[in-house]
Design a protein around this nucleic acid. Structure first.
Length: 271
DNA sequence: AAAAGCCCCTGGATGC
DNA sequence: TGCATCCAGGGGCTTT
């Protein structure tokens, strides 16, 4: 579930509440994607300073070191002074003086990794090759266009790869390409300057609107307060194959690219 | 260097 | 009801 908007919505839903909290204890459930990288007891006594986001990673800054949290495909966080008893899918829990932070992740593609600093190898390994942040000033149109020109793969795959621009996952890739009027199979290198400009704008616009709507809840995404998102109600193409395009009425088509499903309107996205 | 496949894991939906 | 198959928001690793 979690693409950039869901991760950002999650961040916003507990960042202020956890700031200043002191860690009491940490416990881990079943193994996640990677080991924590330190003894859970080593974190006790540290204080949480801020929660930031880089791509689909949440960075929880401690007074010493930081935790990198990734929600994978099925993860969600909860933060409250009183959480329900831990279930079979709760694999990380951090008790603090201001509440308990819990990662629930049935598929366990998610991760919680400790690093001494953002420059430490554990962090670099995850963050170094990430592309531009689409909602920040860092997202430069010229650079975006130049980087697309260097890629021959289909534009949708390039967006998903995350090394040009981060945060666009499978739902938003289809949505963004719809708004830009670009066919998902088009080789990235063939995007003209005006179309790159349009795509750049569509990425910012769609992601920002999705954040404003609390993200998309397809199965069970919720923010750290348990609220669902609503952006799934206004998708133009995602999971709408066979249904009429909301703009021109043409039936939406589906195809597979790199074992992921893609949706587009054959008329609105002519090439 | 870039692209394509495979794989991690669990659960829900669908089909026989 | 039971079982097999396919699919799902991600992304790292290995192979071409």
């Amino acid at each position: 579930m979690p693409e950039l908007p869901e991760v950002e919505v999650t961040r916003l839903s507990f960042a202020l509440e956890i700031a200043g909290a002191k860690v009491i204890s940490v416990c881990m459930g079943k193994p996640l994607r990677w080991p924590l990288g330190c003894l859970p007891t080593a974190l006790a006594g540290r204080s949480v300073q801020a929660v930031r986001r880089r791509g689909k990673y949440l960075l929880i800054d401690l007074d010493q070191g930081l935790l990198l949290v990734h929600l994978g495909m099925s993860g969600s966080l909860g933060f409250a002074s009183q959480l329900p008893p831990a279930g079979a899918h709760d694999h990380f829990e951090m008790l603090t003086t201001q509440g308990t932070l819990r990662l629930t992740d049935p598929r366990r593609f998610g991760a919680v990794v400790y690093a001494d600093s953002e420059d430490a190898p554990q962090a670099c390994k995850l963050l170094d090759k990430l592309g531009m942040e689409p909602l920040s000033d860092d997202f430069d149109i010229d650079r975006f266009h130049v980087q697309l020109k260097r890629r021959k793969a289909a534009i949708k795959q390039v967006l998903l790869a995350g090394d040009v621009v981060v945060g666009v996952g499978n739902i938003y890739a289809s949505e963004v390409l719809f708004w830009a009027g670009v066919r998902p199979t088009l080789s990235a290198t063939r995007l003209s300057w005006p179309r790159s400009v349009k795509l750049h704008a569509a990425i910012r616009d769609v992601l920002a609107r999705a954040v404003a709507k609390g993200g998309s809840t397809l199965r069970n995404f919720s923010n750290a307060n348990g609220d669902s998102g609503h952006f799934q109600l206004e998708t133009m193409v995602y999971a709408r194959q066979g249904q009429p395009c909301r703009v021109c009425g043409t039936p939406i088509k589906a195809l597979r690219q790199g074992q992921r499903s893609t949706f587009y309107c054959p008329l609105c996205q002519k090439a």
